[in-house]
Design a protein around this nucleic acid. Structure first.
Lengths: 220, 220
DNA sequence: TGAACGATGAAGATACTATTGATCGAAGAT
DNA sequence: ATCTTCGATCAATAGTATCTTCATCGTTCA
Protein backbone atom coordinates (compact mmCIF):
# COMPACT_ATOMS: atom_id res chain seq x y z
CA UNK A 1 0.00 0.00 0.00
CA UNK A 2 1.46 3.31 -1.08
CA UNK A 3 0.74 6.41 0.90
CA UNK A 4 1.43 9.99 0.00
CA UNK A 5 2.08 12.16 3.03
CA UNK A 6 1.80 15.86 2.35
CA UNK A 7 3.17 17.59 5.42
CA UNK A 8 5.72 20.33 5.81
CA UNK A 9 6.63 19.99 9.46
CA UNK A 10 9.67 17.79 9.08
CA UNK A 11 9.66 16.37 12.55
CA UNK A 12 6.01 15.37 12.40
CA UNK A 13 6.39 13.97 8.93
CA UNK A 14 9.28 11.83 10.03
CA UNK A 15 7.48 10.37 13.02
CA UNK A 16 4.39 9.68 11.00
CA UNK A 17 6.34 8.07 8.20
CA UNK A 18 8.19 5.80 10.55
CA UNK A 19 5.01 4.75 12.27
CA UNK A 20 3.22 3.96 9.04
CA UNK A 21 6.18 2.11 7.62
CA UNK A 22 6.26 0.05 10.76
CA UNK A 23 2.70 -0.94 9.93
CA UNK A 24 3.67 -2.12 6.50
CA UNK A 25 2.90 0.92 4.40
CA UNK A 26 5.18 2.44 1.84
CA UNK A 27 5.27 6.16 2.51
CA UNK A 28 6.32 8.93 0.17
CA UNK A 29 6.67 12.39 1.63
CA UNK A 30 5.94 15.74 0.02
CA UNK A 31 6.56 19.06 1.68
CA UNK A 32 4.70 21.27 -0.74
CA UNK A 33 1.73 21.12 -3.04
CA UNK A 34 4.06 21.37 -5.99
CA UNK A 35 5.97 18.31 -4.77
CA UNK A 36 2.76 16.45 -4.25
CA UNK A 37 1.47 17.20 -7.72
CA UNK A 38 4.68 16.03 -9.27
CA UNK A 39 4.53 12.78 -7.34
CA UNK A 40 0.92 12.25 -8.27
CA UNK A 41 1.76 12.38 -11.92
CA UNK A 42 4.39 9.69 -11.46
CA UNK A 43 2.87 7.26 -9.03
CA UNK A 44 -0.46 5.71 -8.14
CA UNK A 45 -1.14 6.06 -4.44
CA UNK A 46 -3.63 4.15 -2.37
CA UNK A 47 -4.02 6.90 0.16
CA UNK A 48 -3.05 10.51 0.74
CA UNK A 49 -2.66 12.28 4.06
CA UNK A 50 -2.95 15.98 3.50
CA UNK A 51 -2.01 18.73 5.89
CA UNK A 52 -4.19 21.75 5.31
CA UNK A 53 -1.55 24.37 5.95
CA UNK A 54 1.27 24.14 3.47
CA UNK A 55 3.99 26.56 2.41
CA UNK A 56 2.78 27.06 -1.12
CA UNK A 57 -0.94 26.99 -0.61
CA UNK A 58 -3.93 25.40 0.87
CA UNK A 59 -4.23 21.63 1.32
CA UNK A 60 -7.83 21.76 0.23
CA UNK A 61 -6.87 22.69 -3.24
CA UNK A 62 -5.32 19.36 -4.04
CA UNK A 63 -8.31 17.28 -3.02
CA UNK A 64 -10.23 17.65 -6.29
CA UNK A 65 -7.16 16.54 -8.16
CA UNK A 66 -6.74 13.53 -5.91
CA UNK A 67 -10.36 12.53 -6.24
CA UNK A 68 -10.35 13.15 -9.94
CA UNK A 69 -7.96 10.30 -10.56
CA UNK A 70 -9.47 7.24 -12.19
CA UNK A 71 -8.93 5.11 -9.14
CA UNK A 72 -8.85 7.70 -6.43
CA UNK A 73 -6.82 7.24 -3.28
CA UNK A 74 -8.30 7.45 0.18
CA UNK A 75 -7.90 11.07 1.26
CA UNK A 76 -7.45 12.17 4.86
CA UNK A 77 -7.17 15.78 5.85
CA UNK A 78 -5.13 16.71 8.88
CA UNK A 79 -5.24 20.06 10.49
CA UNK A 80 -4.98 21.90 13.73
CA UNK A 81 -7.99 23.95 12.80
CA UNK A 82 -10.60 21.83 14.48
CA UNK A 83 -13.57 24.02 13.91
CA UNK A 84 -16.79 22.39 12.92
CA UNK A 85 -17.16 24.30 9.68
CA UNK A 86 -13.71 23.26 8.58
CA UNK A 87 -14.51 19.64 9.12
CA UNK A 88 -17.76 19.87 7.21
CA UNK A 89 -16.04 21.78 4.45
CA UNK A 90 -13.28 19.23 4.16
CA UNK A 91 -15.64 16.30 4.09
CA UNK A 92 -17.90 17.92 1.55
CA UNK A 93 -14.93 18.68 -0.61
CA UNK A 94 -14.35 14.97 -0.93
CA UNK A 95 -11.95 14.09 1.84
CA UNK A 96 -12.80 10.69 3.29
CA UNK A 97 -11.88 11.50 6.86
CA UNK A 98 -10.72 14.48 8.80
CA UNK A 99 -8.29 14.29 11.68
CA UNK A 100 -7.66 17.11 14.10
CA UNK A 101 -4.10 17.61 15.24
CA UNK A 102 -2.45 16.47 17.32
CA UNK A 103 -3.03 13.31 15.34
CA UNK A 104 -2.92 10.11 17.31
CA UNK A 105 -0.99 7.76 15.10
CA UNK A 106 -2.74 4.68 16.30
CA UNK A 107 -6.09 6.23 15.51
CA UNK A 108 -4.81 7.29 12.12
CA UNK A 109 -3.80 3.75 11.30
CA UNK A 110 -7.09 2.27 12.44
CA UNK A 111 -9.10 4.68 10.35
CA UNK A 112 -6.78 4.30 7.40
CA UNK A 113 -7.01 0.55 7.44
CA UNK A 114 -10.77 0.68 7.32
CA UNK A 115 -10.90 3.05 4.41
CA UNK A 116 -8.32 1.07 2.51
CA UNK A 117 -10.29 -2.08 3.07
CA UNK A 118 -13.41 -0.37 1.77
CA UNK A 119 -11.53 0.89 -1.20
CA UNK A 120 -10.33 -2.53 -2.27
CA UNK A 121 -13.87 -3.82 -1.96
CA UNK A 122 -15.20 -1.05 -4.11
CA UNK A 123 -12.41 -1.20 -6.60
CA UNK A 124 -13.01 -4.77 -7.48
CA UNK A 125 -16.16 -3.84 -9.32
CA UNK A 126 -15.72 -5.67 -12.59
CA UNK A 127 -16.92 -4.44 -15.92
CA UNK A 128 -17.82 -5.96 -19.21
CA UNK A 129 -14.49 -5.38 -20.84
CA UNK A 130 -15.32 -6.47 -24.34
CA UNK A 131 -18.22 -4.05 -24.67
CA UNK A 132 -17.60 -0.39 -25.44
CA UNK A 133 -20.49 2.00 -25.85
CA UNK A 134 -20.32 5.18 -27.86
CA UNK A 135 -23.29 7.19 -26.60
CA UNK A 136 -23.21 9.74 -29.35
CA UNK A 137 -23.00 7.48 -32.34
CA UNK A 138 -25.05 4.76 -30.72
CA UNK A 139 -22.42 2.33 -31.79
CA UNK A 140 -21.26 -0.59 -29.77
CA UNK A 141 -17.99 -2.34 -30.11
CA UNK A 142 -17.93 -5.92 -28.98
CA UNK A 143 -14.38 -7.13 -29.10
CA UNK A 144 -13.25 -6.33 -32.63
CA UNK A 145 -16.48 -5.69 -34.39
CA UNK A 146 -18.60 -2.55 -34.40
CA UNK A 147 -22.35 -2.95 -34.33
CA UNK A 148 -25.11 -0.53 -35.01
CA UNK A 149 -27.87 -0.58 -32.47
CA UNK A 150 -31.33 0.91 -32.79
CA UNK A 151 -32.43 3.43 -30.21
CA UNK A 152 -34.24 1.15 -27.82
CA UNK A 153 -31.64 -1.56 -28.17
CA UNK A 154 -28.96 0.85 -27.24
CA UNK A 155 -30.80 2.20 -24.26
CA UNK A 156 -31.67 -1.22 -23.06
CA UNK A 157 -28.06 -2.31 -23.25
CA UNK A 158 -26.98 0.86 -21.45
CA UNK A 159 -29.42 0.09 -18.73
CA UNK A 160 -28.16 -3.43 -18.29
CA UNK A 161 -24.61 -2.18 -18.07
CA UNK A 162 -25.56 0.33 -15.41
CA UNK A 163 -27.07 -2.47 -13.44
CA UNK A 164 -24.46 -5.10 -14.00
CA UNK A 165 -25.03 -8.28 -12.04
CA UNK A 166 -28.47 -7.29 -10.93
CA UNK A 167 -31.52 -9.34 -11.68
CA UNK A 168 -33.97 -6.92 -13.31
CA UNK A 169 -37.67 -7.52 -13.75
CA UNK A 170 -39.40 -6.73 -17.02
CA UNK A 171 -41.57 -4.18 -15.24
CA UNK A 172 -38.60 -2.44 -13.78
CA UNK A 173 -36.94 -2.37 -17.17
CA UNK A 174 -40.03 -1.01 -18.87
CA UNK A 175 -40.40 1.71 -16.25
CA UNK A 176 -36.79 2.79 -16.37
CA UNK A 177 -35.97 2.38 -20.05
CA UNK A 178 -39.27 2.90 -21.81
CA UNK A 179 -40.62 5.23 -19.16
CA UNK A 180 -43.33 5.22 -16.58
CA UNK A 181 -46.00 6.07 -19.14
CA UNK A 182 -45.38 3.12 -21.41
CA UNK A 183 -48.48 1.04 -21.45
CA UNK A 184 -47.33 -1.79 -23.65
CA UNK A 185 -46.61 -5.44 -23.29
CA UNK A 186 -43.77 -6.84 -21.20
CA UNK A 187 -42.97 -9.14 -24.13
CA UNK A 188 -41.46 -6.13 -25.80
CA UNK A 189 -38.51 -6.53 -23.51
CA UNK A 190 -38.05 -10.13 -24.57
CA UNK A 191 -37.91 -9.17 -28.19
CA UNK A 192 -35.31 -6.50 -27.65
CA UNK A 193 -33.28 -8.82 -25.52
CA UNK A 194 -33.26 -11.24 -28.40
CA UNK A 195 -32.06 -8.51 -30.75
CA UNK A 196 -29.16 -7.73 -28.43
CA UNK A 197 -28.27 -11.37 -28.06
CA UNK A 198 -28.31 -11.85 -31.79
CA UNK A 199 -26.13 -8.85 -32.50
CA UNK A 200 -23.61 -9.07 -29.70
CA UNK A 201 -21.78 -12.27 -28.82
CA UNK A 202 -20.84 -10.92 -25.41
CA UNK A 203 -24.46 -10.26 -24.63
CA UNK A 204 -25.40 -13.68 -25.86
CA UNK A 205 -23.08 -15.28 -23.36
CA UNK A 206 -23.48 -12.90 -20.45
CA UNK A 207 -27.11 -11.85 -20.45
CA UNK A 208 -28.91 -14.54 -18.53
CA UNK A 209 -32.58 -14.95 -18.13
CA UNK A 210 -33.69 -15.38 -14.55
CA UNK A 211 -36.77 -17.49 -14.70
CA UNK A 212 -39.84 -15.90 -13.15
CA UNK A 213 -37.84 -12.78 -12.42
CA UNK A 214 -36.37 -11.19 -15.50
CA UNK A 215 -32.86 -10.82 -16.87
CA UNK A 216 -29.38 -10.30 -15.51
CA UNK A 217 -26.26 -9.12 -17.33
CA UNK A 218 -23.29 -10.79 -15.71
CA UNK A 219 -19.82 -9.36 -15.57
CA UNK A 220 -17.11 -11.44 -17.17
CA UNK B 1 -32.77 3.49 6.65
CA UNK B 2 -33.39 2.75 10.29
CA UNK B 3 -31.21 4.34 12.91
CA UNK B 4 -31.01 3.55 16.59
CA UNK B 5 -30.09 6.57 18.67
CA UNK B 6 -28.88 5.71 22.15
CA UNK B 7 -28.71 8.97 24.04
CA UNK B 8 -30.10 9.99 27.41
CA UNK B 9 -29.96 13.75 27.14
CA UNK B 10 -33.51 14.35 25.98
CA UNK B 11 -32.91 17.71 24.42
CA UNK B 12 -29.95 16.54 22.40
CA UNK B 13 -31.73 13.38 21.36
CA UNK B 14 -34.68 15.36 20.12
CA UNK B 15 -32.63 17.74 18.03
CA UNK B 16 -30.61 14.93 16.53
CA UNK B 17 -33.69 12.90 15.76
CA UNK B 18 -35.37 15.77 14.02
CA UNK B 19 -32.30 16.51 11.96
CA UNK B 20 -31.86 12.92 10.87
CA UNK B 21 -35.52 12.48 10.06
CA UNK B 22 -35.32 15.57 7.94
CA UNK B 23 -32.63 13.78 5.97
CA UNK B 24 -34.86 10.83 5.35
CA UNK B 25 -33.83 8.48 8.11
CA UNK B 26 -36.17 6.65 10.40
CA UNK B 27 -34.92 7.19 13.93
CA UNK B 28 -35.73 5.15 17.01
CA UNK B 29 -34.59 6.54 20.34
CA UNK B 30 -33.36 4.67 23.40
CA UNK B 31 -32.42 6.32 26.66
CA UNK B 32 -30.79 3.39 28.35
CA UNK B 33 -28.78 0.33 27.45
CA UNK B 34 -31.69 -1.83 28.52
CA UNK B 35 -33.99 -0.01 26.13
CA UNK B 36 -31.49 -0.36 23.36
CA UNK B 37 -31.07 -4.07 23.89
CA UNK B 38 -34.78 -4.61 23.81
CA UNK B 39 -35.10 -2.68 20.57
CA UNK B 40 -32.24 -4.59 19.03
CA UNK B 41 -33.99 -7.87 19.58
CA UNK B 42 -37.05 -6.57 17.80
CA UNK B 43 -35.74 -4.57 14.89
CA UNK B 44 -32.95 -4.64 12.38
CA UNK B 45 -31.15 -1.31 12.30
CA UNK B 46 -28.87 0.05 9.63
CA UNK B 47 -26.94 2.26 11.98
CA UNK B 48 -26.57 2.94 15.68
CA UNK B 49 -25.43 6.16 17.29
CA UNK B 50 -24.22 5.42 20.78
CA UNK B 51 -23.54 7.88 23.54
CA UNK B 52 -20.81 6.59 25.81
CA UNK B 53 -22.21 7.88 29.06
CA UNK B 54 -25.56 6.32 29.81
CA UNK B 55 -27.64 6.03 33.00
CA UNK B 56 -27.39 2.28 33.32
CA UNK B 57 -23.90 1.66 32.11
CA UNK B 58 -21.23 2.29 29.61
CA UNK B 59 -21.97 2.75 25.92
CA UNK B 60 -18.96 0.65 25.03
CA UNK B 61 -20.58 -2.41 26.39
CA UNK B 62 -23.23 -2.61 23.72
CA UNK B 63 -20.83 -2.44 20.78
CA UNK B 64 -19.93 -6.12 20.75
CA UNK B 65 -23.59 -6.98 20.69
CA UNK B 66 -24.22 -4.59 17.83
CA UNK B 67 -21.35 -5.94 15.82
CA UNK B 68 -22.27 -9.50 16.63
CA UNK B 69 -25.50 -9.27 14.68
CA UNK B 70 -25.60 -11.18 11.43
CA UNK B 71 -25.72 -8.02 9.37
CA UNK B 72 -24.21 -5.49 11.71
CA UNK B 73 -25.29 -1.87 11.68
CA UNK B 74 -22.90 1.00 11.23
CA UNK B 75 -21.85 2.01 14.74
CA UNK B 76 -20.88 5.55 15.71
CA UNK B 77 -19.73 6.44 19.21
CA UNK B 78 -20.45 9.91 20.50
CA UNK B 79 -18.89 11.32 23.60
CA UNK B 80 -17.63 14.44 25.22
CA UNK B 81 -14.55 12.60 26.36
CA UNK B 82 -12.35 13.50 23.48
CA UNK B 83 -9.15 11.99 24.74
CA UNK B 84 -7.01 10.15 22.28
CA UNK B 85 -7.03 6.90 24.20
CA UNK B 86 -10.79 6.87 24.28
CA UNK B 87 -11.00 7.28 20.57
CA UNK B 88 -8.54 4.51 19.94
CA UNK B 89 -10.33 2.31 22.42
CA UNK B 90 -13.69 2.92 20.81
CA UNK B 91 -12.45 2.26 17.32
CA UNK B 92 -10.62 -0.88 18.34
CA UNK B 93 -13.73 -2.13 20.04
CA UNK B 94 -15.45 -2.12 16.70
CA UNK B 95 -17.11 1.27 16.39
CA UNK B 96 -16.93 2.52 12.83
CA UNK B 97 -16.49 6.16 13.66
CA UNK B 98 -16.08 8.24 16.75
CA UNK B 99 -17.50 11.73 17.11
CA UNK B 100 -16.51 14.13 19.85
CA UNK B 101 -19.28 16.28 21.34
CA UNK B 102 -20.52 18.76 20.59
CA UNK B 103 -21.49 16.81 17.52
CA UNK B 104 -21.99 18.85 14.40
CA UNK B 105 -25.08 17.38 12.85
CA UNK B 106 -24.08 18.11 9.32
CA UNK B 107 -20.80 16.32 9.85
CA UNK B 108 -22.63 13.44 11.43
CA UNK B 109 -24.86 13.08 8.41
CA UNK B 110 -21.98 13.24 5.96
CA UNK B 111 -20.05 10.56 7.78
CA UNK B 112 -23.13 8.46 8.29
CA UNK B 113 -24.04 8.56 4.64
CA UNK B 114 -20.63 7.33 3.65
CA UNK B 115 -20.65 4.44 6.02
CA UNK B 116 -24.15 3.46 5.02
CA UNK B 117 -23.17 3.53 1.38
CA UNK B 118 -20.21 1.32 2.10
CA UNK B 119 -22.39 -0.98 4.08
CA UNK B 120 -24.86 -1.50 1.29
CA UNK B 121 -22.00 -2.28 -1.05
CA UNK B 122 -20.64 -4.83 1.35
CA UNK B 123 -23.96 -6.12 2.49
CA UNK B 124 -25.04 -7.54 -0.80
CA UNK B 125 -24.12 -10.91 0.50
CA UNK B 126 -25.65 -11.86 3.79
CA UNK B 127 -24.91 -15.42 4.58
CA UNK B 128 -24.62 -18.35 6.83
CA UNK B 129 -20.99 -19.39 6.90
CA UNK B 130 -20.35 -20.84 3.50
CA UNK B 131 -23.74 -19.74 2.25
CA UNK B 132 -23.78 -16.42 0.47
CA UNK B 133 -26.98 -15.09 -0.90
CA UNK B 134 -26.98 -12.06 -3.14
CA UNK B 135 -30.53 -10.73 -3.14
CA UNK B 136 -29.95 -8.21 -5.86
CA UNK B 137 -28.34 -10.58 -8.29
CA UNK B 138 -30.41 -13.53 -7.13
CA UNK B 139 -27.38 -15.73 -6.89
CA UNK B 140 -26.49 -18.26 -4.26
CA UNK B 141 -23.06 -19.54 -3.51
CA UNK B 142 -22.36 -22.36 -1.13
CA UNK B 143 -18.67 -22.60 -0.48
CA UNK B 144 -16.97 -22.45 -3.83
CA UNK B 145 -19.82 -23.31 -6.12
CA UNK B 146 -22.58 -21.13 -7.47
CA UNK B 147 -25.95 -22.79 -7.51
CA UNK B 148 -28.96 -22.08 -9.58
CA UNK B 149 -32.14 -21.80 -7.55
CA UNK B 150 -35.65 -21.49 -8.92
CA UNK B 151 -37.69 -18.54 -7.79
CA UNK B 152 -39.55 -20.16 -4.93
CA UNK B 153 -36.45 -21.97 -3.79
CA UNK B 154 -34.59 -18.72 -3.62
CA UNK B 155 -37.33 -16.96 -1.74
CA UNK B 156 -37.74 -19.78 0.69
CA UNK B 157 -34.05 -19.82 1.48
CA UNK B 158 -34.09 -16.06 1.81
CA UNK B 159 -36.90 -16.38 4.29
CA UNK B 160 -35.06 -18.96 6.34
CA UNK B 161 -32.00 -16.76 6.47
CA UNK B 162 -34.05 -13.84 7.69
CA UNK B 163 -35.39 -16.03 10.44
CA UNK B 164 -32.23 -17.82 11.37
CA UNK B 165 -32.61 -20.11 14.35
CA UNK B 166 -36.37 -19.74 14.43
CA UNK B 167 -38.66 -22.71 14.17
CA UNK B 168 -41.09 -21.88 11.39
CA UNK B 169 -44.37 -23.64 10.78
CA UNK B 170 -45.42 -24.65 7.32
CA UNK B 171 -48.41 -22.36 7.53
CA UNK B 172 -46.30 -19.42 8.51
CA UNK B 173 -43.93 -20.14 5.68
CA UNK B 174 -46.73 -20.45 3.16
CA UNK B 175 -48.26 -17.17 4.30
CA UNK B 176 -45.01 -15.24 4.25
CA UNK B 177 -43.27 -16.74 1.25
CA UNK B 178 -46.09 -17.88 -1.00
CA UNK B 179 -48.49 -15.22 0.18
CA UNK B 180 -51.74 -15.04 2.01
CA UNK B 181 -53.73 -16.00 -1.05
CA UNK B 182 -52.01 -19.32 -1.66
CA UNK B 183 -54.55 -22.05 -1.39
CA UNK B 184 -52.38 -25.08 -1.85
CA UNK B 185 -51.07 -27.94 0.20
CA UNK B 186 -48.62 -27.52 3.06
CA UNK B 187 -46.59 -30.38 1.63
CA UNK B 188 -45.42 -27.96 -1.01
CA UNK B 189 -43.04 -26.62 1.58
CA UNK B 190 -41.62 -30.07 2.19
CA UNK B 191 -40.80 -30.51 -1.42
CA UNK B 192 -39.06 -27.20 -1.70
CA UNK B 193 -37.13 -27.89 1.46
CA UNK B 194 -35.94 -31.07 -0.11
CA UNK B 195 -34.81 -29.22 -3.20
CA UNK B 196 -32.78 -26.85 -1.09
CA UNK B 197 -31.25 -29.67 0.88
CA UNK B 198 -30.35 -31.50 -2.30
CA UNK B 199 -28.75 -28.49 -3.92
CA UNK B 200 -26.94 -26.89 -1.01
CA UNK B 201 -24.73 -28.86 1.36
CA UNK B 202 -24.92 -26.16 3.99
CA UNK B 203 -28.68 -26.32 3.96
CA UNK B 204 -28.55 -30.08 4.20
CA UNK B 205 -26.59 -29.84 7.40
CA UNK B 206 -28.18 -26.76 8.96
CA UNK B 207 -31.84 -26.91 8.05
CA UNK B 208 -33.43 -29.08 10.69
CA UNK B 209 -36.86 -30.57 10.79
CA UNK B 210 -38.76 -29.73 13.95
CA UNK B 211 -41.15 -32.55 14.42
CA UNK B 212 -44.79 -31.51 14.65
CA UNK B 213 -43.79 -27.89 14.13
CA UNK B 214 -41.96 -27.20 10.91
CA UNK B 215 -38.37 -26.32 10.05
CA UNK B 216 -35.52 -24.34 11.50
CA UNK B 217 -32.36 -23.10 9.82
CA UNK B 218 -29.58 -23.12 12.38
CA UNK B 219 -26.63 -20.80 12.41
CA UNK B 220 -23.26 -22.48 12.25
C1' DT C 1 -46.83 -50.88 18.47
C1' DG C 2 -49.61 -47.86 15.91
C1' DA C 3 -50.91 -43.42 14.65
C1' DA C 4 -49.16 -39.27 13.10
C1' DC C 5 -45.79 -37.13 10.71
C1' DG C 6 -41.96 -36.32 7.36
C1' DA C 7 -39.09 -37.68 3.22
C1' DT C 8 -38.90 -38.84 -1.31
C1' DG C 9 -39.50 -39.45 -6.33
C1' DA C 10 -42.20 -39.11 -10.32
C1' DA C 11 -45.56 -37.02 -13.23
C1' DG C 12 -48.98 -33.73 -14.65
C1' DA C 13 -50.32 -29.04 -14.64
C1' DT C 14 -49.00 -24.55 -14.89
C1' DA C 15 -46.40 -20.65 -15.76
C1' DC C 16 -42.96 -18.64 -18.07
C1' DT C 17 -39.74 -17.68 -22.15
C1' DA C 18 -37.86 -17.88 -26.99
C1' DT C 19 -38.65 -17.28 -31.47
C1' DT C 20 -40.75 -16.00 -35.64
C1' DG C 21 -43.30 -13.23 -38.52
C1' DA C 22 -46.87 -9.60 -39.28
C1' DT C 23 -48.27 -4.89 -38.68
C1' DC C 24 -47.79 -0.13 -38.15
C1' DG C 25 -45.60 4.21 -38.26
C1' DA C 26 -41.65 7.31 -38.78
C1' DA C 27 -37.55 8.97 -41.20
C1' DG C 28 -35.21 9.48 -45.19
C1' DA C 29 -34.63 8.91 -50.28
C1' DT C 30 -36.20 9.59 -54.91
C1' DA D 1 -45.73 13.51 -52.77
C1' DT D 2 -44.71 8.81 -52.91
C1' DC D 3 -41.78 5.03 -52.06
C1' DT D 4 -38.57 2.49 -49.37
C1' DT D 5 -36.41 1.05 -45.40
C1' DC D 6 -35.97 0.33 -40.74
C1' DG D 7 -37.34 0.04 -36.03
C1' DA D 8 -40.85 -0.84 -32.47
C1' DT D 9 -44.41 -3.50 -30.98
C1' DC D 10 -47.46 -7.23 -30.69
C1' DA D 11 -49.47 -11.86 -31.37
C1' DA D 12 -49.12 -16.73 -31.95
C1' DT D 13 -46.84 -20.82 -31.18
C1' DA D 14 -43.43 -23.92 -29.73
C1' DG D 15 -40.44 -25.02 -26.19
C1' DT D 16 -38.80 -25.11 -21.13
C1' DA D 17 -38.54 -24.70 -16.48
C1' DT D 18 -40.85 -24.74 -12.44
C1' DC D 19 -44.49 -25.74 -9.12
C1' DT D 20 -47.59 -28.66 -7.07
C1' DT D 21 -49.69 -32.78 -6.02
C1' DC D 22 -49.91 -37.46 -5.07
C1' DA D 23 -48.68 -41.98 -3.66
C1' DT D 24 -45.50 -44.50 -1.05
C1' DC D 25 -42.18 -45.47 2.24
C1' DG D 26 -39.58 -44.42 6.39
C1' DT D 27 -39.38 -42.21 10.98
C1' DT D 28 -40.72 -40.36 15.35
C1' DC D 29 -43.41 -39.99 19.36
C1' DA D 30 -46.93 -41.27 22.73
Amino acid sequence: MKILLIEDEKKLAQVTTRFLEHHGYEVTGAETLADAKRLLSETVFDAALVDVRLPDGDGWSIVPQLKGIANPPVVFMMTSRGEADDRVFGLELGADDYLVKPVVLKELVIRLERWLKMRTLETKKPGLGALMLDERARIVRDGEADHHLAKMEFELLSYFLEHLNEALSRDQILDDVWGYAFGGDTRTVDTHVKQLRDKLPTVKSQLKTVHRVGYRLEAL
